[in-house]
Design a protein around this nucleic acid. Structure first.
Length: 351
DNA sequence: TCTCCACAGGAAACGTAGGAAT
DNA sequence: ATTCCTACGTTTCCTGTGGAGA
């Protein structure tokens, strides 16, 4: 039923970016100075999860590089320190990569030397960027323009200093959720490229678009899931029950991808919450300490302390893998989907 | 109203891995 | 081979918040 799996993956780059024409025109204008050999305006792109911010930024950059040769870098900022971000930019620009222990100051000087023409740096997943010094360091580089991609523009701007905020005033692109018709249109394109003809009709695509509340990524994952379910159930076409069940499978796949991208300690904490939750913080720490020895036996890692575990929990919550119920002393951690399990080997933990 | 307690999260100190310099 | 230096993850210490109970 599915003829091209990659069409439904995050890495797929569609030939046309639909229903973002006004936003793309705005960004094209902001990039216009580069065509004349000048520094482009900085841009802040924001919108909820799964509305296509990353692909929009990629598309905008691609559109520009087709018109004119421009030095550019595109980096994911999630979890990176100031030095890590500056290093990633250097690695993406032409020239030799910096060595892994190059001091932060040297990295910044190297970047200032390397940027000798208008350069655009896309900073994806930049929500935590204001908590590093990377923005100031990048702003110090003449000719370097920043394209920041984040979820919440107000929150982001409230955490940066005045001079950085000033650079983005009037250059904010709001990527909202799609309307049902718009999203159905996007799904139709994926259907044409990735599915056998005739397995899903227009009304069903609209239903999927409606179910996923305008979130393109979720809708595309759901379309794939519906096709997989229909195939598993030996249906010749996608039926309404396949559509009904597609969202759970799509969400499960999204969460599995998030979990797989995290390191070992996160998996341990997640698995404890999954196996024993809902858990109060003190219960979680209790189980962790009682079972740490067996949990870590098969690895070279060593158990971590409470404070570090809290950081792992925050990350798991940000990745929509666990949720926090209640507040203060009534807090409880619970996994969002019990069916999403770590694929790392983590020993069973007796309570 | 006051004190105690549970909890989150910021800041600085610390330990370690790994590359560069000698 | 050894020493030095740096980044990065973790630990330690601390503050702020808010509910429970006297």
């Amino acid at each position: 039923m599915i003829t091209k799996t990659h069409v439904f993956e995050d890495t797929y780059f569609p030939r046309r970016l639909r229903h973002r024409e006004a936003e793309m025109d705005f960004v094209t204008n902001a990039f216009e100075p580069v065509v004349r050999g000048q520094q482009a305006d900085d841009i802040l792109i924001h919108g909820p999860q799964g509305v296509g911010k990353t692909i929009f930024a990629r598309y905008a950059l691609n559109h520009l590089t087709q018109r004119t040769a421009v030095q550019h870098a595109r980096i994911g900022c999630l979890g990176k320190s100031t030095a890590g971000i500056v290093r990633a930019v250097l690695e993406d620009l032409p020239g030799p990569d910096p060595h892994s222990t190059m001091p932060r100051e040297d990295l910044c000087l190297e970047l200032q030397e390397r940027v000798d023409e208008p350069t655009i740096v896309v900073l994806d997943e930049a929500d935590d960027l204001p908590f590093t010094h990377a923005l100031d360091r990048l702003a110090d580089v003449d000719g370097l323009s920043m394209v920041v991609v984040c979820h919440d523009d107000d929150g982001w701007l409230s955490h940066v200093n005045d001079s950085i905020r000033h650079r983005f005033v009037g250059n904010i692109v709001d990527l909202g959720t799609y309307g049902v018709d718009e999203l159905a249109d996007i799904l139709e394109e994926r259907r044409q490229v990735g599915l056998q003809p005739g397995v899903i009709d227009e009304d069903q695509l609209r239903t999927l678009a409606d179910m996923t509340a305008g979130k393109a990524r979720r809708a595309i994952f759901a379309l794939r899931a519906a096709a997989e379910l229909a195939h598993d159930r030996r249906h010749r076409q996608i039926r309404s029950e396949d559509i009904d069940d597609s969202l759970d499978r799509a969400d499960q796949r999204l969460r599995e991808e998030h979990l797989a991208s995290l390191p070992f300690h996160h998996h341990v904490v997640y698995e404890l919450v999954r196996r024993h939750g809902p858990l109060a913080p003190s219960e979680l720490h209790d189980i962790y300490e009682k079972t740490a020895e067996s949990l870590y036996r098969s690895t070279e890692q060593t158990p971590i302390g409470e404070r570090a575990r809290r950081n792992k929990l925050s990350k798991l919550e940000a990745y929509d893998l666990i949720e926090v119920l209640g507040a203060n002393r009534h807090r409880e951690y619970r996994v969002c989907d019990r069916a999403v399990a770590s694929d790392l080997e983590i020993a069973p933990s007796a309570r």
